[in-house]
Nucleic acid binder design. Structure first.
Length: 479
RNA sequence: GAGGGUGUAGCUCAGUCGGUAGAGCAACGGACUUUUAAUCCGUAGGUCUUGGGUUCAAGUCCCAACACCCUCACCA
């Protein structure tokens, strides 16, 4: 590093690059390949290019060196001859280590063995990497280091950068799908006075000036519904929510969720929207409906199956879901404690145990027991059934949607009646008088949808752990 | 929170029965103008996660702590 400063005009601490050509860009290799096929690969006179990237491989051959540089579009080989770049530049080149970022001017050509390369005329030292990079062949393997030093994982990990760029494409596609249907994106508060809209333990914090207890939001629901009251007829928020729960391959304490509300819609319109959002996201990634998943595949070919909660219950649990006594005895047979619990709570415990893992999907599970859905409108002809669906894929809950309850009196009643067998933490029913007041001013009938973005990205990028789709998952403080 | 696993050089990993700490890559020095993770010769690099204990002797056995991974529970 200190020696570098002896080289005139090249200070790696202040290196600058302008107008660099992307290694794998449309106007780069693609154009060159076209050019090469037009002229025949034996024509060795190529276009002049300028590129910049990190040195990831380096082979020396006396007065000749090969270096592979990498930018976020890909890798390309540099062919660097001592004569071709001159003595002074050659001296500079010999200061370059793996991990450094260099620029190059040269001619794009094929080597004798047909490798597309930049035949350098000038090397520019742009940035010195003082730390040593990971091993060039095995890369960074330790999962702890890959998460703590994500910058190294992104540069050197196979498929890591494309996976996170695909996450961005998926999110962008979702926004496009919604924009095309007239939905507007808003930004609600993340600090809540009541942690409502879902059943989860919140992170608790405090505002000093107001001397007020605050909760990090666990859901987006109740503020978006307030906006529906205010006349924002198609509205959504895509953002982070926080739940003070365990960490697992499917759970991170902060995760990304989208909630969408459509006035004059219902859970069926949300089902169509959900399917469209996912299919468009798949389209954005290349449009293949059969996506790899571990050793198998997921078949996203539309339309996704739509099955009622009760049908699936009967099929997988082997018990009539309407026969509360039979359901209870099955629950006890499994080993659940049923004492003092509401029949629907028991039924749902059995559902989660017997049915959810079997839902390879994609499958929309529709029509849930009303009593476990305090924010959902009941079916007109059957108040025991709520107009709710959940989308399951590979046993994971990906989406959850309702025909939204907009009756303030019923909402108030459901907020205040805790279902037997559910602790306050387990219940979505948390009294929110301010929200009830909003409903009293009239919320249009509506469909509402929530989608776990991280899990959707997992499924579309063949990632078995949520940490592979979150850039900086929560970890304990390192040294 | 419970159970199991892992922790050795910058990175990827060996380390047998408890007996002086190893390799490859990277780094450094040298040779080589068409190479493809791996050319050849040489040099340097370690508080074996941390703290105790057993032992003549501990990377190795025991205990505890810390971090990460897996399974389960909670949750999406």
């Amino acid at each position: 590093m200190p020696e570098l400063e002896k080289v005139e005009g090249e200070d790696p601490k202040t290196g600058r690059a302008t107008s660099t050509w992307m290694v794998n860009s449309a106007d780069g290799q693609v154009a060159f390949r076209q050019w090469a096929s037009d002229h025949g690969v034996t024509d060795f006179s190529g276009p002049t290019v300028r590129a910049a990237g990190r040195v990831v491989l380096h082979r020396t051959k006396g007065k000749l060196q090969f270096a592979d540089i990498r930018d976020w579009t890909g890798d390309i080989q540099l062919f660097i001859g001592r004569q071709q770049i001159g003595e002074e530049n050659w001296e500079l080149l010999n200061q370059v280590d793996l991990g450094d970022i260099i620029g190059v001017d040269g001619e794009l050509r094929l080597t004798k063995v047909g490798e597309l390369s930049i035949f350098a005329t000038k090397i520019h030292f742009l940035t010195k990497s003082i730390e040593q990079p990971p091993e060039k062949f095995h890369g960074l393997n330790d999962p702890e280091l890959r998460q703590r030093m994500r910058y190294l994982d992104l540069t050197y990990g196979d498929g890591v950068l494309p996976r996170f760029l695909n996450r961005t494409k998926i999110v962008h596609s979702i926004r496009s799908t919604l924009a095309a249907q007239g939905f507007v994106e808003i930004e609600g508060p993340t600090l809540h006075t009541i942690a409502g809209g879902a059943a989860a333990r919140p992170f608790i914090t405090h505002h000093n000036t107001l001397d007020m207890k605050l909760y990090m939001r666990i859901a987006l629901e109740l503020h978006l519904k307030r906006l529906m009251v205010g006349g924002m007829e198609r509205v959504y928020e895509l953002g982070r929510v926080y739940r003070n729960e365990g960490i697992s391959p499917k759970h991170n304490p902060e995760f990304t969720m989208i909630e969408v509300y459509q006035a004059f819609g219902d859970y069926r319109t949300m089902m169509d929207l959900t399917e469209q959002m996912i299919l468009n996201a798949i389209e954005a990634l290349g449009g293949e409906y059969q996506l790899p998943w571990g050793d198998g595949q997921i078949d996203f070919t539309p339309p996704f199956a739509r099955r009622t909660y009760n049908d699936l219950f009967a099929e997988h649990a082997g018990v009539d879901p309407l026969d509360a006594a039979a359901v209870k005895s099955l629950a006890e047979q499994i080993g659940f404690d049923t004492a003092g619990k509401h029949p629907d709570v028991i039924k749902n415990e059995v559902f989660e145990e017997k049915v959810e893992d079997a839902l390879v999907g994609p499958v929309f599970v529709i029509d849930y027991p009303a009593s476990i859905c305090p924010l959902t409108k009941r079916k007109q002809d059957n108040p025991e059934v709520a107009e709710r669906f959940e989308l399951f894929i590979q046993g994971m809950e990906i989406a959850n949607a309702y025909t939204e309850l907009n009756d303030p009196d019923l909402q108030e009643e459901l907020f205040s009646s805790q279902l037997a067998g559910l602790s306050e933490e387990d219940s979505m029913a948390k009294m929110d008088h301010d929200f009830i007041r909003a409903l009293r001013h009239g919320m249009p009938p509506a469909g509402g949808l929530g989608v776990g973005i991280d899990r959707l990205v997992m499924l579309l990028t063949n990632s078995q752990t949520i940490r592979d789709v979150i850039l900086f998952p929560l970890m304990r403080e390192g040294q």
